[in-house]
Amino acid sequence: MSTGAVLYAGAIGLFLIGCYAMVAERHLIRNILGLVLVESGVNLLLVAVGFRENAAAPILKAGQSAGMMVDPLPQALVLTAIVIGFGVLALALALVVRVHQAYGTLDTREVARLMRVEREASGPGAAGPRAGAKS
């Protein structure tokens, strides 16, 4: 099996595992880990797109033409994507902390149920701008 094929298989595999974690797991942290896996898979895919068998690192030195190098652009993209993913991950974890503070659980269905209960309780009568909502 060529390196490229391994790369693609790994990328797709990571992606699928991540998807499974996001869909099937009920724990928010696991969902987020799934998201991380999905992102890794996609990043790997991007790298694989730019990969060339037996090519050199994309550093322009004397005597090396662009065609002999690995495509550098996807790598730059992946760098950016990793940074973005990191930011999103941090924000997600921060939100998880707040959700846990508010609901005392990280079970997705439980959180969804509590949110619905809360919304319906704040329905007729008790309605009005909620606490802390500065609009």
């Binding site: 707040r98 959180v111 802390g132």
Partner: peptide, 10 residues
Amino acid sequence: ASGGSAAGFG
């Protein structure tokens, strides 16, 4: 989430 409500975070 800037509303600050629990539902907002969720």
